[in-house]
């Protein structure tokens, strides 16, 4: 056991708060992977993982939202059962759904950057509806673009086949998550936090 006794480098106050929030949002995204709802318009159930990505970007802003999703991927890679269906491991990151997973940090960054209009964090509840919805629509497009390309590379499918096999059935449900995310960031309970 080697103890670094020469100096203790304390983490700054603001950074402690941001690290804690980023870790908790990453853990929440993992916990959301276990929550599923029946989809009224499609036989595929709705899982809430992507809602975690949206909320990370909206609440933590582009930088810490993106870092939060990096923590999510790292924790999943070394064994936290946070990926879809409670799976984990490096295998998941290079497997058929790897494209989706790698898109999360990028999507959270972009959602945060659009919703906050840059790298400086503002209160998401005060942003216009169009800006919030636009941010999440772009985020959704990024997630599905990465996911489709990943699936096509990993399984050797054409982009069209990959889109039909792995994306098209899930896209309608994203509208529900976007609508719910707007309600969440504008709710009094979250605004008070």
């Amino acid at each position: 056991m080697s103890t670094d006794t020469a100096s203790v480098e304390l983490v700054g106050e603001e950074a402690v708060e941001n690290v804690a929030r980023a870790a908790l949002l990453a853990a929440l995204t993992g916990a959301f992977a276990y929550v599923s709802f029946p989809n009224p318009v499609s036989p595929v159930t709705i899982s809430l993982q992507v809602l975690g990505v949206f909320l990370a970007g909206l609440l933590l802003g582009p930088v810490w939202g993106g870092l939060s999703m990096v923590l999510y991927l790292a924790a999943g890679a070394v064994g936290a059962p946070v990926f879809a269906g409670g799976s984990s491991g490096i295998g998941s990151l290079v497997g058929q759904s790897g494209g989706y997973l790698w898109s999360y940090p990028v999507a959270a960054f972009v959602v945060g950057a659009i919703a906050h209009g840059g790298l400086v964090i503002r209160d998401p509840a005060e942003q216009s509806l169009v800006r919030l919805v636009g941010a999440m629509v772009v985020g959704t497009a990024i997630i599905y673009a990465f996911g489709t390309i990943g699936l096509s590379v990993v399984l050797g499918l054409s982009l069209r086949e990959a889109f039909l096999a792995g994306a098209v059935a899930f896209i309608p449900a994203e509208a529900f998550k976007i609508a719910a995310a707007i309600g969440i960031v504008r709710s009094d309970q979250i605004a008070a936090e």
Binding site: A31, F32, L48, L55, I184, S187, I190
Partner: peptide, 11 residues
């Protein structure tokens, strides 16, 4: 339902 779980879980 998603909003309710999201608000309470996030809070």
């Amino acid at each position: 339902r998603i909003r309710r779980v999201g608000v309470a879980g996030l809070a």
